[in-house]
Simulated scan of single mutants.
Amino acid sequence: MSSDFRRGPWGKDPRPPEIDQFMRAAQDRIRRTFGGRRFPAGWALVLIAVALWLATGIYQVNQDEVGVVQRFGKYSRTVKPGLNWKLPSGIEKVTKVGIQRIYQEEFGMRTLRAGVRTEYAPERQYEHESLMLTGDLNCALVPWVVRFRIGDPIRFLFRVRNVRDTLRHLSEATMRQVVGDHSLDEVLNKREIIADLAQKELQAALDQTESGLVITTIELGRTNVPEPVQPSFNEVNAAIQEKEKLIYEAQGSYNRVIPEARGQAEKVIQEAEGYAVDRVKSAEGDVARFLALYEEYVKAKEVTRRRLYLETMQSMLPRLGRKFVIDPDQKSVLPLLDLGKKGEQK
């Protein structure tokens, strides 16, 4: 990857052939053409100069590049990778553009040396690029990296005067707009969403300027708050965590107590409903029994009355314990007639 726009993304031309070798080969060919006779030195120099001039039209385009040819400064054609030839220098000019390479621009940070242990420049040196204002009027440090490629080499070369500056200005403006539309909590915890929105907005702006660039990714670095407000920010985070802890505890108590109370209420309701059904059924049974007795009583009043009396006494006497029968007309002492034991034996 490279972000060096001073050289341009098209690299350097290959070295031309050695002049001495070319002149010796040209002289040998001229001698063979004229049968070994000496050719005038002036004409030889002219022919050599013309050959060298024509040789400037030979050039090589790498596999990840295309060649944009200009004739007298005007766009002529685009050539594919491989060995190509153009009109000599002064007539046509070729500019190689790496359309398959990925370039990057860094904001709020700089990579000094990439490798296994990458070295970065101090963040404070570029803090002015990453310091932004969020939607809830808080300050945040938002470093990011823009990775892109050249999608249209013609627009890249001819539509925008300074592509690098245009990209940096648009990227910074877009990121500040997106961050300004979100709260500090969203900027710190939803970096992927912020990066996706910024990528879409930046690509739309670049398409409008016809820069020929295609944004591949936008990656946000470690977002944070400025150092002077870091202690206050930590206190706010601690308070928020305590608040969430209390809310979770209350929610847990609610989830434990409310279902238990609901279950108890349903149990009481079911018991009451069961008791009501039992009382109703019992009352209905008593009514039916009374009606049946009444019907028998109407048919034979004396018999029914005596039967009810005997049945009542039969059910009551065993529950009275010891019983003594005394004749009210007897004035002397009578032997005790103990009916209780017999009743109990029954």
Score class of each variant (00 low, 15 high):
Trp144Pro: 07
Trp85Arg: 06
Tyr59Asp: 03
Phe156Tyr: 10
Glu106Gln: 13
Glu284Tyr: 15
Ala140Lys: 05
Arg37Pro: 11
Gln208Thr: 06
Leu317Met: 06
Val61Thr: 05
Lys299Leu: 12
Phe72Val: 01
Thr223Tyr: 12
Pro318Ala: 03
Gly180Gln: 02
Lys331Cys: 09
Gln27Ala: 03
Val69Gly: 04
Arg289Ile: 14
Phe107Val: 03
Arg101Asp: 13
Phe290Asn: 14
Tyr120His: 08
Arg77Gln: 10
Lys341Val: 11
Arg77Lys: 06
Phe148Pro: 06
Lys190Ala: 12
His182Cys: 06
Ile218Tyr: 02
Leu220Arg: 08
Phe107Lys: 13
Gly180Thr: 00
Val325Arg: 09
Leu308Ala: 10
Met23Val: 10
Gly343His: 14
Val287Leu: 14
Ser76Arg: 02
Lys200Ala: 15
Lys299Glu: 15
Thr134His: 12
Arg31Cys: 11
Gln203Leu: 06
Ile215Thr: 04
Val142Arg: 15
Gln27Leu: 02
Gln314Lys: 08
Asp20Met: 10
Val179Pro: 11
Ala300Phe: 00
Arg191Asp: 11
Asn224Trp: 08
Phe107Asp: 14
Arg113Ile: 14
Met23Ile: 11
Gln100His: 12
Asp13Val: 07
Pro16Ser: 00
Pro335Gln: 04
Glu273Thr: 13
Asn162His: 11
Glu295Asn: 14
Trp53His: 05
Arg289Met: 15
Ser211Val: 09
Gly263Glu: 03
Ser282Phe: 14
Leu310His: 08
Leu337Asn: 10
Arg305Gly: 15
Glu201Ala: 13
Val163Ser: 03
Val303Asn: 12
Leu141Asp: 03
